[in-house]
Amino acid sequence: MIAERQEELAALGAVDLLSPAEQAELAAAAAADPAFAVLVASCRSTAAELAYSAPPVVPPTHLKTRILASLSTQTTPATARPARGTVIPFASWIGLAAAACFALAAAYFGQAFVTERAAVAALRDQQTLADLALRGATNQLEAERLISRRELAAASAKAAESSGLVAALESRLAEASLTAADSARQLVVSREQITSARRELTARDQRVSDLTRQLAAQGTLADYKIATLASLLGNSPQALAVAVWNPANQEGVLTVQKLPALAADKDYQLWVVDPQYPIPVDGGVFRVDPATGEARMNFRPNLPVKTVAKFAVSLERKGGVPKAEGPMVLIGP
């Protein structure tokens, strides 16, 4: 019974796929088992038949001529035996002697010829071996040359790549240096700008403080009183006045429009009505532009005012009076 492993060895051996160790295993098994040896031979013969599965190609006729011509320069096969000589009978001893001499001479020259031919064949074999060795060495050199060329090309490429990398790094370093210099300059400028901004900020803080103080001193805008005074005059219904009163500073501004022009002995007089006083407080006298009827007057009542209930304007004698005597011309709000 042949094991599967042996079949595998025989099959792989038939197509020359065995490693040296497997070849040794195959040879040993075949030597030990004749049946396996038959299988090995059979597999090899079967594998050889695969040659017929190749696309058939007829060899050129000159190939046979070439091969036969090569044979003419080859030694005969090792087992080739010369044809056995025919014994020639001799009629007399003279003939026998002559034949013996001839045979000896022929043997001598034949031996010399065979020896010489063997020597020539040996030399040819040596030459063939030398040619093979030379071819092998040439192939080896060619292989080494190709390997060296490829390695050289690879090294050159790597060197070129490295050079390019160094150049790129140097370029980037130069750019980085320029950028660093720009950054340093920008840093100086920025520091100056920061210093200037701090100074300005300090100045603005100072102004804010001043304004805050001023505002605190003047009071807030919400505390201001703005009053519109309407006309009480039948002949000048469009007459109008606006009074802005700052209670913190106890002062105000009066603006009037379209009031009738006055006679030389008359003045308009402003009154501030404060509930804490029994009569309105005098706010001062003013006259209007005769052409436009407009006037603007900064006023400061002659008594402290806590609460402004109303503003009023009356027509008085020139220079004003302590207590209103003439007709009211404007009042509000």
Partner: peptide, 11 residues
């Protein structure tokens, strides 16, 4: 032999 051997070598 030449034809199958040559065919194999060509193949």
């Amino acid at each position: 032999f030449s034809k199958p051997l040559y065919s194999t070598a060509v193949r």
